[in-house]
Design a protein around this nucleic acid. Structure first.
Length: 284
DNA sequence: CGGCATGTTGCGCA
DNA sequence: TTGCGCAACATGCC
């Protein structure tokens, strides 16, 4: 499930819980869950995402306290109060096979279910279930942002892609262009598939040394990324809503098939330990 | 049975 | 110190 578009679709789903109060939290798996703070009784204020990480902000405000606060003057003094004392953050990374989905509270545990968080909103309880077959995912509660979150680079959807900065880093590193693209501290959320597809759309050979990348290349990559991210989100949302939708991926997983653009056989190599599909004849 | 998998981390070595 | 390559993690699926 896990590159930027998939995680964004999960975020939008979990955002339906905003305003609700957590009434139950359960997990069996200490490998995935690092729970340092109790979250039961807290209110879901905001569901955010940066790259492949989700961040759910909880506060301790109850309904009556909220009414009291808005009537008082504490807000005026504190402005937007992004992370006041008492806020608890839940970080979730989906690893390779993680996913969140919303269910009725009486629904039996799903296959591979590792965590459940039940949220009450207006007398209705929604049960958010986290499933993860391979258990590479993580769920951490913390009072402050965790290192993994702080170390993420700009998110292409939230902050856009800074082409000048991207070019600068490409010039500096001694890696292939694909490996640099997948560096989460440079650009958060670009995984193996997005990198493969963006380089194909930009007609750039993924094996190219990043130092050989030009401003024009960076521009092509950036606009390809924007397009693929947008299409993949639309695709994933369609599937979630039960609509039919054709996969936006053109070459991922299709080594040996003919290139959809020029017909040459697609090739496969390993870069940075990751399988990489490309067309040697139309990607330079 | 063998091989592969949308991710991250940590270790050994240059 | 830095950076690279690669194994490891745990399990399902083709």
């Amino acid at each position: 499930m896990p590159e930027l578009p998939e995680v964004e679709v999960v975020r939008r789903e979990l955002a339906k819980l905003r305003g609700g109060t957590i009434v139950r939290f359960e997990s069996n798996d200490a490998r995935i869950v690092d729970q340092r703070i109790d979250v039961v009784g807290r209110v879901v204020r905001e569901v955010g995402r940066r790259g492949k990480w989700l961040r759910i902000a909880l506060d301790r405000r109850t309904r009556s306290a909220e009414r009291g606060a808005s009537g008082g003057d504490s807000r005026g003094h504190r402005g937007a109060e992004p992370l006041d004392r008492g806020t608890v953050l839940v970080f979730s990374h989906l690893g390779m096979t993680g996913d969140w989905s919303l269910h009725a509270p009486d629904e039996p545990a799903l296959r591979f279910e590792r965590v459940r968080i039940d949220v009450r909103r207006a007398r209705r309880i929604t049960s958010a279930r986290y499933t993860d077959a391979r258990r590479f995912g993580r769920l951490v509660t913390s009072a402050t942002d965790i290192d993994a979150w702080r170390e993420l680079g700009p998110d292409p959807l939230l902050e856009g892609i800074d082409e000048r900065h991207l070019l600068e880093v490409m010039q500096k590193r001694r890696r292939t262009v694909k490996e640099v693209l997948m560096d989460q501290s440079l650009l958060a959320g670009v995984g193996n598939i997005l990198a493969i597809e963006a380089l194909f759309a930009a007609r750039i050979d993924p094996r190219s040394p990043s130092r050989s990348i030009t401003a024009r290349d960076v521009h092509a990559i950036a606009s390809a990324l924007r397009t693929i991210i947008r299409r993949t989100i639309a695709h994933d949302e369609a599937l979630l809503e039960g609509r039919r939708s054709r996969s936006p991926f053109r070459i991922y997983g299709r080594a040996k098939s003919p290139c959809p653009r020029c017909g040459a056989a697609l090739r496969q190599v390993v870069l940075g330990g990751r399988t990489t599909t490309f067309c040697a004849s139309c990607q330079r």
